[in-house]
């Protein structure tokens, strides 16, 4: 084992880690946003709206993420060409981000839905009795309470996404894992680089899940 070329590779690894973190943060934000919208649709009284959202969620939960990533890599430029009528190169990062948002939204939707359903019905009644519209009641009363209850689960799902971002290697995007692998190949120390990469994933994920555990205890009180 020879870890001597690691220090020289740190800037490249840092670049890769930044890509990973950008995918993670934007993916979670977009996923939670779209997931919340889907959750509200699933809870809607309109059967058509609820069924459409259910179909979406069940579909995306039934196919592998790797498939979604490769699929969107080809589908997004194609769809944009259909819409705009000209070639619009979007690049691997944008297409991966779209794939993550759409895929994770299906999982976030189920978390948010459970969170909303855990809030007593009387809260909605009380908000409406004060003259708030359904939208206001949701936004001001139900969702803030639901999100507080869901925070640990949302973070847990985000940790899984952090690991899953490594799948972008399949479309050639240089994230942290891909950076480590290609560097290792170039300097001829692939094992050492992969060990370091594994350590970094472990430390980040483990620290984050410890944080979630502590948060869970605090929110439980």
């Amino acid at each position: 084992m020879d870890f001597s070329s690691i220090p020289a590779a740190l800037p490249a690894l840092w670049d890769g880690l930044q890509t990973t973190l950008q995918l993670l943060v934007l993916g979670v934000l977009g996923g939670v946003l779209l997931g919340t919208l889907l959750a509200m649709m699933r809870l809607a009284h309109n059967r058509l709206v609820a069924n459409l959202a259910a179909l979406y969620v069940n579909y995306f939960r039934s196919i592998p993420l790797l498939l979604v990533i490769t699929w969107f890599y080809f589908a997004v430029p194609f769809a944009l060409r259909e819409i705009t009528g000209e070639d619009t190169p979007v690049g691997a990062f944008a297409s991966c981000l779209v794939a993550f948002v759409m895929f994770e939204a299906a999982y976030f939707c189920e978390i948010v839905r459970a969170g909303i359903q855990a809030i007593p019905k009387g809260q909605m009644s009380a908000a409406q009795a004060l003259g708030m519209t359904y939208g206001q009641s949701m936004r001001l009363i139900v969702l803030p309470q639901a999100f507080r209850k869901m925070t640990p689960l949302l973070l847990q799902q985000s940790i899984i996404l952090f690991q899953d971002t490594s799948l972008v290697y399949s479309v050639g995007l240089i994230d942290f894992l891909n950076a480590a692998r290609s560097r290792g190949d170039i300097v001829g120390q692939p094992h050492e680089f992969l060990i370091v990469a594994g350590l970094v994933y472990f430390v980040v994920s483990f620290a984050a899940s410890q944080l979630v555990k502590r948060l869970q205890k605090r929110l439980a009180v």
Binding site: P120, G122, Q123, S125, A126, A127, A129, I141, P144, Q145, R148
Partner: peptide, 10 residues
């Protein structure tokens, strides 16, 4: 006014 108060806990 409701049986279970229904104040907003947050």
């Amino acid at each position: 006014v409701f049986q279970h108060f229904e104040l907003f806990p947050h």
